[in-house]
Design a protein around this nucleic acid. Structure first.
Lengths: 276, 276
DNA sequence: CGAGACCTTGATGTCAGTCAACTAGTGTGG
DNA sequence: CCACACTAGTTGACTGACATCAAGGTCTCG
């Protein structure tokens, strides 16, 4: 059985749309389907004639490398649109992460036709694409972190932001350690160690394997490294400087070296553009 | 002097548009400006009332971490649109990488108004946003590579793809090693070592610090790791298995372990949604 | 109970970051 | 002109963070 529980219901959503979206103009064309954990939603994203949107639940966009290593290149949360054409040769698959993930499926052609006639639809699609860009940039930013601890920290923050509407500090991880590892480009063991590391520093609490409570959000934010584009703002090192695991008093501690190497917007304008 | 050489000329482009884009509907509103190497194009991307588009030259989107480390989160090549609103708290700056980078600047409101009346404009903006998504996904994919060698390999491939219209195997690196390092999340030294490593394996040639010739593209592609979503396709290890540096016959060599760990589309459906 | 998924912890090896030294090209000023 | 400073790039030695390998623990389900 493929797409086992797929049942087509026309509008059927807009009811579950969980947040601050504009009134939905896309609903009319939707066919929703429910997916089980691990079930494939679309095989070659972008190659299909459909666009998709997560209504509830969570999905992952991934590729499997020749080595057998799976890489998760994106997490799709409620409200996220996916499936639009990708120019590159890369093609990713998407599958559900949590049981009963509900996905709306739109025929691309008809949606685009509708966008051509109704500017509001066009605008909404545009904004969703912008959202995608925004999220991907954040992800790139997270992946660019230097240490595993910071990656995991950033990941928790982002998750809490998107899952709990920004305030509640109790997160239920929707995915396994393996998923997190594949998402952050780490090994499972490292992810596990980082979580216990954060726990030992008193920054988070682990009440059950999947339940995380953020105790010291500020430390987490600092430790996860800045966000600010100005070198001036904020200079503390972050949670890496904190007491560290109380029992084994080894030093973590961020080196925090490397001054902006050069070619910085500064005065040296003429020297710059030579390039051989 | 800010934006030193900025001179406003109305259409002024479409002439330099370098590739396979649809006939340009956006030109009429543009004001173009030329930037020097290292010069800032926009400070808080997304916060401005303008959208930008690289006409010629190259720009980098970056943030500076509290540690002083600069992180490049995107490379903007000719044709790329940037500056659209980002939802997250992250704000990146954009500056020119090569001398004389030409950037078109559009008033956001007027462009959106035009998109509302002209579906072709709306469509074009949409496609540009999709392109952005596509490129960012590729970048995430590259950043997810495990080894530095693979990252650099992927980077070269992507660059050759985008800069030389896909065929020519001679690349002129538009950026310094520092930039590459900050882009790939590596140190300069590692980037340098990787390039010489690839040279010693006979995969590329370095004719001058900024001039790279891809000798064995296939090896580069294999070594940089797969692209395919099916575990079945392709199983060779890539250039890491190759003779390796002829003089120091140490073994690199890809471990290529880790089978898809679990929770794979498999039968365990009921267990999944528990989360505690 | 046993099987299997999921998670954690420990020991060990290795890749890449760090520090340091060196080369080369370029612009500056005595 | 040459000394000097500065930037870009390369290479080597050392070390530390993370992957890997291995073992054990917990929970759920059959």
């Amino acid at each position: 059985m493929d797409r086992a529980t797929a049942h087509c219901t026309a509008p059927a959503f807009g009811a579950r749309d969980n947040d601050r979206r504009p009134p939905d103009k896309l609903g009319a064309l939707a066919a929703t389907a429910r997916y089980r954990n691990g079930q494939e939603i679309c095989h070659q994203e972008g190659a299909t004639e459909s666009w998709y949107r997560v209504v509830s639940g969570i999905a992952r966009r991934y590729a499997v490398r020749p080595s057998g290593r799976r890489q998760i290149v994106g997490l799709l949360l409620p409200g996220d649109l996916f499936g639009f054409p990708s120019r590159g040769e890369y093609a990713f698959s998407v599958e559900a992460v949590v049981e009963g993930t509900l996905v709306a499926c739109y025929p691309r052609r008809r949606l685009e036709a509708q966008a051509d006639t109704d500017p509001a639809v066009a605008r909404q699609i545009r904004e969703m694409a912008f959202d995608s860009v925004s999220r991907l940039q954040e992800q790139v930013f997270i992946l660019g972190r230097t240490t595993a601890l910071k990656k995991v920290g950033s990941f928790l923050l982002k998750l809490s932001e998107r899952l709990s509407d920004g305030i509640a500090d109790r997160i239920v991880l929707p995915m396994s350690r393996y998923d997190i590892a594949d998402y952050l480009g780490l090994s499972v063991e490292t992810v596990s160690r980082c979580l216990t590391g954060l726990k030992e520093r008193g920054i988070i609490k682990l009440t059950g394997p999947r339940r995380v409570t953020i105790v010291d959000r500020e430390a987490l934010e600092e430790g996860s490294g800045g966000i600010w584009s100005d070198p001036e703002e904020k200079h503390r090192g972050g949670f890496l400087d904190r007491p560290a695991p109380p029992i084994p008093p080894d030093g973590f501690g961020a080196p925090a070296r490397r001054a902006p190497p050069s070619s910085f917007s500064g005065p040296q304008l003429a020297t710059a553009g030579r390039a051989t």
